[in-house]
């Protein structure tokens, strides 16, 4: 069944997008999970909608708007969580909501009907243009080089930030780079599954991988593999059942998550 799907260019692009976002999602998702940044990533994803609104209002590319606002939101949230650790979740919640509201209002104020809107909420993996694939590939290269150079620093920071700092790890710079790359990964993942479901793809493969990985690197590799399997399988399922691709991918991932819990429980890992 796969070969006859591959005759459509949009399916080839969609499958390539699945594999490309799986690399950045698996790696950044692993770091997001072990650093407890899941809620912050959700905040970034939603705040990015503010940038989509600004871009539509100004008539420029929504993804550039989303990228800029995701980056800004990540830096603000990162600064707040360093300064006021115990209230950072509230601040993230505020930015989350305000970003969404700004986006919706600006889209309201823009004349004309915007059919594109739903694609930012639920993804449009079947409509991924070729140049976006290059963007995803570029991000993957940056992420891979960064993780290769700073692997042990990232490991030390994720496990114990204070000890890492005592050992001379540039914790602050590393933390903000982590947030910036997370923001970029979030924006590119929104392409596939939409901002509402981006958190699932960032967290589920990593959480499943965490239970049977002996190292952070293994967890990253497994998360990339699982993410690819979930995405490709979800995409094919969506195609055959005529369902929304983003939501189907997330449901497949959720199925994998519950399956891993049940198996893990049976083997005494639960």
């Amino acid at each position: 069944m796969i070969p006859d799907i591959l005759q459509f260019e949009f399916m080839r692009n969609a499958l390539a997008a699945c594999l490309l976002i799986s690399i950045s999602c698996g790696i950044m998702g692993t770091l997001v999970v072990v650093n407890r940044l899941v809620f912050l990533s959700g905040g970034i994803a939603h705040a990015s909608y503010g940038g989509v609104g600004v871009a539509i209002f100004l008539g420029s590319s929504p993804y550039i708007g989303a990228g800029i606002s995701a980056f800004l939101a990540a830096m603000i949230m990162g600064g707040v969580s360093l300064r006021a650790k115990h209230r950072s979740d509230s601040i993230i919640g505020v930015i989350w909501a305000v970003g969404m509201a700004v986006g919706i209002i600006l889209v309201d104020l823009t004349p004309g009907y915007h059919v594109d809107l739903m694609s930012y909420l639920f993804g449009s993996i079947l409509l991924v243009p070729r140049e976006n694939l290059w963007m995803m590939a570029g991000l993957n290269v940056v992420v891979l080089v960064w993780v290769r150079l700073f692997y042990h620093d990232l490991l030390a920071m994720s496990y114990d930030e204070e000890h890492a700092q005592v050992m001379g790890v540039p914790v602050r710079g590393l933390y903000f780079t982590l947030l910036a790359l997370t923001a970029l990964a979030v924006v590119t993942t929104i392409q596939a599954v939409g901002l509402i479901l981006v958190i699932a793809l960032l967290t589920i493969p990593a959480v499943v991988a965490e239970r049977f990985s002996g190292s952070l690197g293994a967890m990253m590799a497994w998360a990339v593999l699982l993410s690819s399997v979930f995405c490709v399988f979800g995409l094919l399922l969506a195609y055959h059942l005529n369902l929304t691709a983003g939501a189907t991918i997330v449901m497949v991932a959720a199925g994998g998550f519950f399956l891993s819990r049940i198996i893990g429980h049976g083997r005494g890992l639960g």
Binding site: V34, L149, F150, H152, D153, L155, A156, S158, Y159, D160, H163, A164, M167, G168, V169, E210, R211, S213, G214, S215, L216, A218, M219
Partner: peptide
Amino acid sequence: HLQFPITAEDLVLLGRLPHRRR
């Protein structure tokens, strides 16, 4: 961080961070 995927040996190696070349 009891769930953290790291072995005892890898954790001890982190004590060598100031000595390692990037």
